[in-house]
């Protein structure tokens, strides 16, 4: 398997929900691609549309409710948005799987965890109940559960949050997926468990060779585990770059603000920087660049207030959407 092959490519994805108050534009003009065996991180504040993207890829967005979705999500040469529900079911859980933020509520309280894992294995790998159970125990061992035979017989409420998330990961990894979508996989966990879970994901990634789409608001996590990072703000990707470059010299003022608001060991500061203002409501996005009301440059410039910058490549592999980013105008 070539490492650089593109596994999933999202092109010009738009998602909106029409409500009684107006259209909520949850995702606008989002394009990115994930390479095989790599980790792509989507970073942003709550409500910026990153989970919507994850759910669009899984085709899990709630039906009805005036949802409109356009663009392309190409996975293994087919557009996921055009597949029938039946075809999609063969991809879900088999080639693309997802783990959720809250392990406590993501496991079915009435079934033993072993059964929950075994059901997915039986379905996608055509194994009988006994084999699937053995596989479930094996995968539980793989995700670092000490007594897998015992744990497989436990009900979710008998496990701790970290254990539950390990079970979720076991379930997601049981069919050796090509892509694992991790939607804030560690938000509900303690800091020490977070590291364990992320190390586990990292290890599984190397073993299985899967790609990971990491959806998070935790920049610390991104700096450790991601290969490519896309920063989202108010439904758009504002900056996309390989991890090293993004952290070394952020181009978009929002990314800069985010990085400055992180505590750092090497710089002593009395107070952390904050980005002034709040995230705009999806119904009342400002005209022009959506970040301009909170941006020192943007407030001063008419162009920022009136015309929205699109995402452009400023160096090879670096994309940014800001009129005043270095190299933005030249190309």
């Amino acid at each position: 398997m070539k490492q650089d092959e593109i596994l999933l490519s999202v092109q010009k994805l738009y998602v909106s929900f029409s409500t009684e108050d107006g259209d909520i534009k949850a995702v606008q003009d989002v394009s990115f691609s994930i390479r095989k065996g790599r980790t792509f991180a989507l970073v942003g504040e709550s409500g910026c549309g990153k989970t919507t993207i994850a759910l669009s890829i899984m085709r899990l967005l709630p039906a009805g409710q005036g949802k409109t979705i356009s663009g392309e999500i190409i996975f293994e040469n087919q557009d996921l948005l055009k597949l029938s529900e039946k075809q999609m079911r063969r991809i879900r859980g088999n080639k693309i799987t997802m783990i959720f933020q809250e392990p406590t509520t993501s496991l079915n309280p009435v079934h033993k965890v072993g059964n929950q894992i075994a059901e997915a294995i039986r379905l996608h790998q055509n194994k009988n109940a006994k084999q699937a159970w053995a596989d479930a125990v094996e995968i539980l061992r793989k995700v670092g559960i000490a007594e897998p035979e015992h744990t497989a017989r436990a009900y979710p409420h008998q496990l701790s949050g970290g254990m539950q998330q390990r079970v979720m990961i076991a379930m997601a990894a049981s069919c050796k997926p090509a892509l694992l979508i991790a939607d804030e996989p560690t938000t509900a966990l303690d800091a020490t468990i977070q590291v364990q879970i992320l190390n586990l994901l990292d290890r599984l990634q190397k073993e299985i060779g899967m790609s990971i789409l990491l959806v998070t608001h935790d920049l610390g996590m991104v700096s450790e585990y991601a290969d490519v990072v896309a920063v989202m703000y108010a439904s758009r990707i504002v900056e996309k770059a390989p991890k090293g470059q993004l952290f070394a010299e952020p181009c978009h003022p929002y990314t800069r603000g985010l990085l400055q608001s992180l505590p750092r060991l090497d710089v002593s500061a009395k107070r952390l920087e904050v980005i002034p203002g709040t995230v705009p409501e999806p119904l009342y996005f400002p005209a022009g660049c959506k970040f301009h009301p909170r941006c020192p440059t943007g407030q001063k410039n008419k162009r920022c207030r009136t015309v929205e910058p699109e995402l452009r490549e400023v160096q090879s592999g670096r994309y940014v959407a800001c009129w005043y980013a270095p190299g933005y105008e030249k190309r």
Partner: peptide, 10 residues
């Protein structure tokens, strides 16, 4: 969530 998880497992 667990229903979503079940759907996401196909």
């Amino acid at each position: 969530d667990f229903v979503q998880a079940a759907v996401s497992l196909g």
